[in-house]
Design a binder for these strands. Structure first.
Lengths: 387, 387
DNA sequence: CTGAAAGCGCTTACAG
DNA sequence: CTGAAAGCGCTTACAG
């Protein structure tokens, strides 16, 4: 077997006309390394079912009888390598359970095969919304089909660009970002743009839509329209929107208003503003304004969690739903089907968003997608029992 | 300002007595790099609010007027650096928004500051259980306080050790793993053990408990006991356990049986086995065995999702809960409080688990925790309306 | 098609 | 306390 060390071409005296001889690759040093590293790190030489933990392309090259350059090319399926050589090396690698050291690869290529999934940090809740959880869960799987791993992170309200949003990119921990954007600010997006790194916004706030970046939008105006339409079709004439303040909610309200205007019947509607989207907040706000709420016959709430707060408050105070008041939610999270009455709601196409977002970011990272990717998806009405 | 290049000590002719001059660090090469890399990667020199994307310790060193070794030490807060130098460098780094290249650091130290959060892949559901989501969400935050990022991954049933479970470790993408272990197999754990890498099991199946690895267990026997005790205290005498097959569920059943044996009253109990933990499965199974179910007066279901399936089926078929049949669930997911009647259930201490797991894995990674970490936590009963 | 070399951006033993 | 050097494990331009 041909070992790479010592290199056969080393001139005994060095070339006289060069002051500095090239630094011959340190081929010798497969074992005795100068820099120590233990302390919790994986022990050198540990093996697992015949799979060695610290297999490198250098060792693979020794076993295959080629240079490690060739091993590297073979493993990356380079067309420069002879087919038989490639097959030999690949099968050897498989047998020995070789896994590339992602840090080394990343350092050499300048790109880590991870994408950051970043969503707004709600200090109010110890966990993400059901909607976010479902989306993350699905994206992780889709990402895997592209050979990408998912790193999760949060971002705070308006803390500027030194958030996790840019950190992961700047540390080169991720090759790109999928950002659940409904709370990302314009300065943050601009900072990202200046970084010129791959990122994609899901559901950005209206003020962001004209930013020249990849986006997947949901037509929330239509969502609001659909909600009002359904309520009106159920014969409801005095409507109430339970909503948080914020541009992203106003859009839905605009759709709502348009449906009301489109209706042939005389419809009145009003708004009950809640401070945040927590279940408890919705519940308590409705309880505090019971008379106003009971004066209406149909409620549109801006998220399923909010809807469930409204629904439960109504039920607990003896208001029959949907007999006296209809309720329409928004999101169609898993739990919307488990309430009694089951929640009629506007479905956000999470699976589709996950698939598209994932394909898009993968393409951007691969350099396949160069121009701005913008997709606008339509929500749909899911008819259940609460309206 | 003293720049590092060219090195002042280069002998013009090279030392005569050495064949190979030492390879002087390539200090020159801060700009003209040989290896190209673009294609979706972050553009060189892009800047963001005065923060340069590709700031390195080399450039920092030039600006600070020291060697980059000193910069490295200063940034890592080494006691070897003079305090004033350290402060100078650190403030410069902060000003310029320097962020370490995590791949380079990882390659040099052998450890990446990420931990993998791995949970069982349920092919049946497009998203994780609410319990898992909540745990992941909390762990991510706790991890951040240790300077660790969270990488999420799944593992399949019994596909052996070439899962994501070992992949992330072997690729050096993570320094350690937190594994939601209720479906991890003994061979998988053994493979992990042979790898000698930091990992911690949450809630492993009973057959794993004697493996010499870090674990956080929940006393599910007690959980089962508490459930039966509550049902009995509510005057229930003919009990039914709705459960999946599996060791981890048998433990709860044992606790349940013990409570029945401890009771002074004559209690009968039976088991209704469901094929999996899906809501629909629970609902349909109860519907298919309505007579048997109606013959009992108290149900203990093995997860909240299952309980809600049972609850809804009962409600939908006109059985009043808890008047005719009491229901006790397991897990205490967020949604348990939103059902009507609100679900009485066994609370798993997710927050505590998240905090402990996170502290433990951080300690193991840091090398602080050397002996086996085993924590056994106790579930508690949450009394609501369904029992 | 293949190999030797240089480089990616860090850390750290070694030698002042 | 500081600097120059070597090394981490890859990729890839360059030269056969």
């Amino acid at each position: 077997m041909h070992l790479q060390s010592p290199p056969r071409t080393i001139p005994v005296d060095g070339p006289a006309n060069r002051v500095y001889a090239p630094a011959y690759n340190r081929l010798q040093n497969t074992t005795g390394c100068k820099n120590r590293k233990e302390a919790g790190a994986v022990r050198q030489g540990a093996s697992c079912d015949g799979l060695v933990m610290d297999m490198t392309i250098r060792k693979l090259a020794q076993l295959a009888g080629t240079s490690y350059s060739t091993v590297s090319r073979a493993l990356n399926d380079s067309p420069l390598v002879k087919d038989s050589t490639k097959r030999h090396i690949q099968s050897l690698a498989r047998q020995l359970g070789y896994q590339v050291n992602s840090s080394a690869k990343s350092l050499a290529t300048g790109m880590q095969m991870n994408v950051g999934l970043v969503y707004p940090f709600h200090s109010l809740r110890p966990y993400e919304s059901a909607y976010t959880s479902q989306a993350i869960s699905r994206m992780r799987r889709e990402l895997a089909t592209h050979g990408l791993d998912a790193l999760v992170a949060g971002y705070g309200g308006g803390e500027g660009p030194t958030d996790d949003i840019t950190r992961l990119l700047r540390q080169k921990k991720v090759a790109g970002l999928i950002i659940f954007g409904y709370e990302v600010s314009r300065p943050q997006v601009d900072a990202l743009l200046r970084l010129d790194a791959p990122f994609l916004l899901i559901n950005p706030a209206p003020g962001i839509e004209d930013a020249p970046c990849h986006q997947i939008r949901i037509d929330h105006e239509l969502g609001g329209y659909l909600a009002a339409q359904r309520l009106i079709a159920a014969g409801r004439r005095r409507l109430l929107c339970v909503t948080e303040a914020g541009e992203q909610f106003d859009v839905r309200l605009r759709g709502f208003a348009r449906a009301v205007a489109d209706a042939e019947e005389a419809i009145t509607w009003d708004t009950l503003t809640i401070e945040n989207g927590l279940y408890e907040t919705a519940y308590d706000t409705v309880a505090a304004h019971l008379d106003e709420v009971r004066a209406c016959d149909g409620v549109f709430a801006q998220s399923d969690l909010t809807s469930i707060g409204v629904l439960n408050c109504l039920l607990d105070t003896g208001v029959p739903v949907p007999e006296q008041i209809s309720v329409v939610g928004y999101d169609d999270i898993e739990w919307a089907q488990y309430t009694r009455p089951a929640l009629t709601t506007i479905h956000q196409p999470v699976s589709e968003v996950a698939r598209l977002a994932t394909d898009a970011i993968a393409a951007v990272i691969a350099g396949t997608q160069s121009d701005q990717y913008v997709e606008k998806l339509q929500p749909t009405l899911v008819d259940r029992e609460s309206c």
